[in-house]
Design a protein around this nucleic acid. Structure first.
Lengths: 192, 192
DNA sequence: GTGTAGGTAGACCGAACGTTCTACCTCTTT
DNA sequence: AAAGAGGTAGAACGTTCGGTCTACCTACAC
C-alpha cells in the first residue's frame, strides 16, 4: 500500500476534467459525446454525473480550466516584466508560444462561441466573461504604461490576438506569430 | 396557370441552400439536424438526398455560397475603388458593414473551422481554400499599391479582419468596427 | 405517348446522443 | 461498528441523428 495520500480531492474528477480539456479542445464540443470522454478518462458514466450536472456543466468546467491557465500565463508575464510594456510584450510572446505549439487548435473560447452562439447560454456567457477579463487586463497594462487612449489600444491588442489565434491553425503558425508580434511591437511603439 | 417558366434550375434546391445558409450560419453546423433544414425549407428528405450526397456536401455547398458572396463583395469594392488603396479601404468598409448588420454571427469560415478541425476533412479544406483566395486577393492589392512587403502587409490585413470578425459578435460591434477600420487606415498609411 | 427528371409523402433503419437507474464495492471519518 | 462519500459496472431510457426506401404524382422533351 505505498500510495500517496492525496486521494481526497477526487482523482476521477481530475481525470475527467483533463480528458474533457484535451478532447473538447482538439475535436470540438458538439462533435464529442459523453461516451468518448467517460471512456478515455477511464471513468463510468455514473461518476461523471456525480461530479457534473450534465455535459453543459462539464463544458463550462473545461472552459474555466482554460481560463485559469490563461490567468496564470498573464500573471507569469506580469512577474517577469519589469514594466507594463515588457509585460505586454511578454504576454504577446506567451500567446505566440501557444500558437506555435503542436497541439494548438485555436482559441478554446472563440471555438466554443462558434458552437454556442446563443448569448444567453451558460457556455457563451463563460466565453464572454473570459474575454472581458482579458480585455480589462490588457487595458490596465496600457493605462499603467501611460497611454492616453488605453481602451482603444487594448481593443487593438485584443483584435490582433483574436486574429492570430483564429488563423494560427489555419495557416503557417510561424508566419502568423511573426505578423502578430510585429503588430504588438507597433502598438507598443505608438502608445509607449 | 400564370406561372413563371423558370421552374427548371430546381426551386427546391435553392430553397434548401438558402435555408442551410441561414440556419447553419445562425446556429452552427453540428447543432442543426437535417430534419430542421428539410422542415424549414419545406422540402422532403428524399429531395435533399436527390441534390446532395449527404449533410457534409450540403455544408460544403453552404460555404461555397458564402464564398461566392464574398468574392462578389471584393469585386464590387474593386469596381468602386479608383486605386488599390481605395479598394482596400472599401473592402474594409464592406467587412465593417457586415459586422454591424444585425444578423452578424461571425465569420462563417472561422466558425466552420472550429467545428471541423481535421485538416483532411472536406469542410475544413473548403475553409482553407477560401482563406487562401482572400489572402491572395489582398496581397495582390498591396502589390498593385506598390508596397515592397506586400505579403506581410496582407497577412496583417487578414489578421485584423479575422480578429474583427471573431470579436464582432462577442462585444460591441461598433467599437470593433472602429478599431478595425482604424487599423486598416494605419496599414494603408504605412504601406501606401 | 412515353420516358425521364424532379418532386411529394412518409415509413423505416441502425447508431449515437445525453441521461438515469440499480446494485455493489471500498475507503475514511466518526 | 456504523455511516457516508466516492467509485465501479452495466443495463436501460427516450430522443435524435444521418441516411435509405417504396410509392406515387407532375411537367417537360423526344
Amino acid at each position: 500500500m505505498a500510495r500517496t495520500d492525496t486521494t481526497r480531492p477526487s482523482e476521477a474528477r481530475t481525470r475527467l476534467l483533463n480528458t474533457a480539456l484535451r478532447i473538447f479542445y482538439a475535436e470540438g464540443i458538439h462533435a464529442v459525446g459523453i461516451d468518448r470522454i467517460v471512456e478515455e478518462a477511464q471513468v463510468t458514466r455514473a461518476t461523471l454525473y456525480r461530479h457534473f450536472l450534465g455535459k453543459e456543466e462539464l463544458v463550462v468546467a473545461y472552459l474555466n480550466e482554460v481560463d485559469a491557465a490563461m490567468r496564470g500565463q498573464a500573471s507569469a508575464a506580469a512577474e517577469r516584466g519589469n514594466s507594463p510594456a515588457e509585460t505586454l510584450r511578454g504576454l504577446g510572446e506567451a500567446i505566440a508560444a501557444g500558437i506555435r505549439s503542436p497541439e494548438f487548435r485555436g482559441c478554446a473560447f472563440l471555438n466554443a462561441a462558434a458552437e454556442y452562439p446563443d448569448p444567453a447560454h451558460p457556455v457563451h456567457r463563460t466565453v464572454l466573461a473570459h474575454r472581458q477579463w482579458f480585455h480589462d487586463t490588457v487595458e490596465a497594462l496600457f493605462t499603467e504604461l501611460g497611454t492616453p487612449s488605453a481602451e482603444p489600444a487594448a481593443r487593438h491588442f485584443v483584435m490582433l490576438r483574436d486574429g492570430a489565434m483564429a488563423a494560427g491553425c489555419l495557416s503557417d503558425a510561424s508566419l502568423v506569430c511573426e505578423t502578430f508580434l510585429r503588430g504588438v511591437d507597433g502598438l507598443l511603439r505608438v502608445h509607449g
